[in-house]
Simulated assay, not measured.
Amino acid sequence: MLLTIDAGNTNTVFALIDGDEIAEQWRISTADQRTVEEYMVWISNLMALHGRDISVITGAIIASVVPQVVWPLSQLCKKYFNCEPIVVGADGVKLGVDVRVDNPKEVGADRLVNAVAADAIYGGPMAVVDFGTATTFDIVGNDGAYLGGIICPGINLSLSALNQAAAKLPRIAISAPEDTRVTGKTTLEAMQYGIFWGYVSMIEGLVKRLKDEHGQNMKVLATGGLAPIFADHTDAIDHVSGELTLLGLKLIFERNQ
């Protein structure tokens, strides 16, 4: 069974993949001070709760945008799961696609993994919109090559900035409006509509510009926890995949065997 680890800026997702099936999936907050033993206690307890013995893990792959967590996660795989993990972005690790940007080492591992999965599942040309700590738009070319993209502040970052910088504005959670109104009658409504419809407009505007630049036949795929909410309120998104990064990690692991 394959262990995939996707370490983002906010959360780290551990998943067990059995063949083509994602058998288990667990999430923990990303912390650069967490030790190997802390990771092991956490994941071994979860595996035991789900009737999984650690001996079922026969391979591992890691994608991380937080450099400080790569070492303890790698040691977790080596010390407790008896396997040498593949680390996306490390020398010699094959993606199976070209990375056509000025400095490939700069590109976040998650963005490359998403591009690999998007090309394999849907084929290019495609824009992948990932609603994470940052909202990113990544371009997959006709031949599957990664062509670059756009990085924008994430939705929760924007909400935090409003709350911290404006004394009278409360901290709110993102939610889809019940109708198509954009004029708020209260401060709470004004904030909710501004964030939600503001991001919808950003998605639609940037997708239009990307299509103008890369071709009108470009498909748009959304991933990340908030992807379904936004996909239901705009025609700019063609497909939604909540497990795109995990599928991309599985593909990269297979390509390096």
Rank of each mutant, 00 (worst) to 15 (best):
Ile43Ala: 06
Ile43Glu: 07
Ser44Val: 05
Met47Ala: 10
Ala48Lys: 14
Ala48Pro: 02
His50Asn: 09
Gly51Glu: 00
Arg52Thr: 10
Asp53Thr: 06
Asp53Val: 03
Asp53Asn: 06
Ile54Ser: 12
Val56Glu: 13
Ile57Leu: 06
Gly59Arg: 12
Ala60Ile: 03
Ile61Ala: 00
Ile61Leu: 01
Ile61Lys: 01
Ile61Val: 03
Ile62Met: 07
Ala63Gln: 04
Val65Ile: 14
Val66Glu: 11
Val66Lys: 15
Val66Asp: 09
Pro67Met: 06
Pro67Thr: 04
Gln68His: 15
Gln68Ala: 15
Gln68Asn: 15
Val70Asp: 15
Pro72Phe: 04
Ser74Leu: 09
Gln75Phe: 12
Cys77Phe: 05
Cys77Met: 06
Lys78Phe: 07
Lys78Ala: 09
Lys79Cys: 11
Tyr80Gln: 08
Tyr80Phe: 15
Asn82Val: 07
Cys83Asn: 13
Glu84Ser: 04
Glu84Trp: 00
Pro85Thr: 00
Pro85His: 01
Val88Cys: 01
Gly89Val: 04
Ala90His: 13
Ala90Cys: 07
Val93Cys: 00
Lys94Asn: 14
Gly96Val: 02
Val97Met: 12
Val97Thr: 08
Asp98Tyr: 10
Val99Gly: 02
Val99Thr: 08
Arg100Ile: 01
Arg100Phe: 01
Asp102Lys: 15
Asn103Ser: 12
Pro104Leu: 03
Glu106Cys: 09
Val107Glu: 05
Val107Gly: 08
Gly108Asp: 10
Ala109Lys: 11
Ala109Arg: 10
Asp110Met: 05
Leu112Ala: 10
Val113Gln: 06
Asp119Asn: 15
Asp119Gln: 13
Ala120Phe: 07
Ala120His: 11
Tyr122Val: 09
Gly123Lys: 14
Gly124Ala: 04
Gly124Thr: 05
Met126Gln: 05
Ala127Leu: 00
Ala127His: 00
Val129Asn: 07
Asp130Glu: 07
Asp130Gln: 05
Phe131Gly: 07
Gly132Phe: 02
Thr133Gly: 01
Ala134Ile: 00
Thr135Ala: 02
Ile139Leu: 12
Val140Asp: 02
Gly141His: 00
Asp143Ile: 02
Asp143Ser: 03
Gly144Arg: 09
Gly144Lys: 07
Ala145Val: 03
Gly148Glu: 03
Gly148Thr: 02
Gly149Trp: 07
Ile150Arg: 02
Ile151Phe: 04
Pro153Gly: 01
Pro153Gln: 02
Ile155Pro: 06
Ile155Asn: 06
Leu157Lys: 09
Leu157Val: 14
Leu157His: 06
Ser158Ala: 09
Ser158Leu: 05
Leu159Phe: 06
Ser160Asn: 12
Asn163Tyr: 13
Gln164Glu: 12
Gln164Cys: 06
Ala166Tyr: 09
Ala167Trp: 12
Lys168Pro: 08
Leu169Trp: 10
Pro170Gly: 11
